[in-house]
Nucleic acid binder design. Structure first.
Length: 560
RNA sequence: GCGCUCAUAGCUCAGCUGGAUAGAGUGUCUGGCUACGAACCAGAAGGUCGCAGGUUCGAGUCCUGCUGGGCGCACCA
């Protein structure tokens, strides 16, 4: 299946010609095969290898009982590229067939890019399929740390890429406002509140040590004083937790917005319990025969989908586990009509993946409808020393501090330029000191550079008029044009492989080729037609840089 | 012990359904601003792609084993 992009259409021309040649050769008795292999039309790494390379001869060798180069020669004999944009083909290496397009083909690509204007890069790959991307979903008991920042950058970019590729993406944050940790949270707040009012009580052993909570309590005391001191402890804890959750959640939301991340849905775990959805999903699993009763608890029979052991859904004390709520949550996602669900989790949750997908299958949902992207950790170094990230002990760098220290653009680019499955060592001091040679500035600089030149060229030529792109003959111009032409394919690749970092790599390449072009060719020159063509090339480059950066949540300043 | 994951240049990382001579940044060295932004460019040097097998016409990419790092194996979330 060839994707319907600017380059995809051109690959399709090559593909059809090759298939026609194979069929003609077969009809003439020169080749004999049962079925055509699913061959590739790809972009060769070396420019010397032409514009497109086809590997069909190697793939068909066994079936045809011929050497690859002989098959290639036979294809050459029967291929007909009259009425196509193919200029010539040659056989190379072990049997590659390299195609070179007509001289003006890159110019035609640029024409098409200009014609598409603002829509360039938009694809219909998703066909409006509804995809939910759930990410961060940090416990609302503390502040967001570096790991959350990474998840936010990856999740938000992935959603943006999916949207551009034609999917209907929804960003969601699952608020864990129920369960065990809320109880601990309430105990912590209770202690802090009473201590703040001068009572001599012990701080709970498993309490939260973050520096944010005492501040929050101070703020509350300033507002209401000792109003809660006299009421019953359970009620006091409830009030305190209520207040703190509201405040913490607002802070989390603000921090994410400040990071350029905006959610469509904030989904409350507590609602799942209150609405009976958790109980209901357990009943449903029971009806389907997936439950076991053992030692007073209710278990999901995970061994039936290959897991080592069953998992508890309802504890002996009657309280459902996090896993039970999570199953209800994921069922709810499907009930809301999402065709696909993508969860971005920290690597420490990997043990949860198979049983979550298994549970969905137990409910009758297709195993592949849930995808989990596991994100490796961010290890934080300060003064050359590893900082253990822990909410419990309160030693971590928050998202707000990160944005404050290194800036939003640099932080987002940094997190999204690495694939999710690489472990990141983040040196806070280094991030600050080397801010000038951060890769994000390389890309942004290319954009600013173009804007500056376009501004200076303003009025010298009619920038709206149609230009003759065949005038662009320099190697650096061709390279740049090629990069631009491949942009939609890059979006498609990043969307299909759930790989936002691919866009970052592409942008670094594109920026490099722009800078190279800048060194090779001058834009403001006496030859007005050539100038117009170069300005249009740069304008298209600026557009793609800006579009690409926007997918990563990074700004494209005109001056810097 | 079992499971997931990663290992590519001194360092940080890319490497596009397996494809031709493995790339970039950074660091080191050399050269380039009295024409459009030097936060830039050009060039040099730097590799047994962790190790050993296997599949294939072809393996950094797929499979198996091993070594090493990270993570997980709760009636926590």
């Amino acid at each position: 299946m060839e994707i319907n992009t600017l380059m995809g259409k051109r690959r399709q021309i090559v593909r059809r010609s090759v298939i026609a040649a194979m069929e003609a050769a077969q009809a003439a008795g020169k080749l004999s095969y049962e079925q055509l292999a699913d061959f590739a039309v790809e972009r060769p790494r070396e420019a010397a290898h032409g514009d497109f390379a086809v590997n069909i001869a190697m793939l068909m060798a066994k079936q045809c009982g011929m050497a690859p180069r002989d098959i290639a020669r036979t294809i050459a004999e029967y291929i007909d590229f009259n009425n196509t944009t193919i200029a010539k083909m040659e056989i190379a290496g072990p049997g590659f067939i390299n195609f070179r397009m007509a001289d003006d083909w890159l110019a035609s690509c640029l024409d098409e890019i200009v014609d598409q204007g603002e829509d360039f890069g938009r694809l219909d790959l998703g066909q409006g399929e509804k995809i939910q991307v759930e990410f961060v979903s940090a416990n609302p008991t503390g502040e967001l740390h570096m790991g959350n920042a990474r998840g936010a950058a990856i999740g938000d970019s992935l959603a943006a890429i999916l949207e551009l590729a034609g999917f209907e993406a929804s960003r969601e944050f699952y608020v864990n406002d129920a369960g065990n940790q809320i109880e601990k949270f309430a105990n912590t707040l209770n202690a802090l509140y009473l201590i703040e009012l001068g009572e001599e009580i012990e701080f709970p052993e498993d309490g939260y040590h973050g520096a944010d909570l005492p501040l929050l309590i101070k703020k509350l005391v300033a507002e209401i004083g000792d109003k809660y001191q006299q009421i019953e402890e359970p009620l006091r804890k409830e009030y305190l937790a209520e207040y703190a959750l509201r405040e913490k959640l607002a802070a989390i939301k603000a921090a994410l917005e400040n990071f350029g991340v905006n959610y469509d849905v904030w989904f409350s775990e507590r609602n799942l319990h209150d609405s009976g959805a958790v109980k209901d999903v357990i009943d449903q699993l029971g009806q389907r025969g997936w439950l076991l009763e053992k030692e007073g608890a209710l278990w999901l029979d995970c061994e039936r989908f290959g897991e080592e052991k069953p998992e508890v859904l309802v504890r002996a004390n009657g309280i459902p586990t996090y896993f039970a709520a999570d199953i209800a949550y994921h069922r709810d996602k499907y009930q809301r009509g999402f065709d696909k669900v993508i969860d971005i989790w920290g690597a420490d949750h990997h043990g949860h993946v198979a049983r979550m997908k298994g549970a969905m299958e137990a409910l009758g949902y297709d195993y592949d409808r849930l995808e989990v992207i596991l994100m490796q950790f961010v290890r934080l170094y300060k003064d050359g020393e590893l900082l253990k990230m822990s909410k419990r002990t309160g030693t971590y760098v928050t998202l707000d501090e990160l944005v404050e220290e290194v800036g939003r653009d640099a932080a987002r680019f940094f997190f999204v330029m690495r694939s999710a499955d690489s472990l990141i060592d983040f040196d806070m001091d280094l991030a600050k000191s080397t801010r000038a040679d951060n890769p994000v500035y390389y890309v942004q600089y290319a954009h600013a550079r173009i804007c500056s030149i376009l501004a200076q060229a303003n009025g010298l030529v009619d920038q709206q008029a149609k230009v003759d792109f065949t005038l662009l003959q320099d190697e650096s111009e061709h390279q740049l044009a090629l990069d631009l032409a491949y942009f939609p394919d890059q979006v498609a690749y990043a969307a299909m492989h759930r790989a936002p970092h691919h866009i970052a790599s592409y942008l670094l390449d594109l920026a490099g080729h722009l800078h190279n072009f800048y060194g090779q060719c001058h834009c403001i020159i006496d030859d007005l037609e050539l100038m117009a063509a170069r300005l249009a090339l740069m304008k298209a480059t600026a557009f793609v840089l800006k579009k690409g950066l926007s997918l990563l949540g990074v700004s494209a300043p005109e001056k810097m």
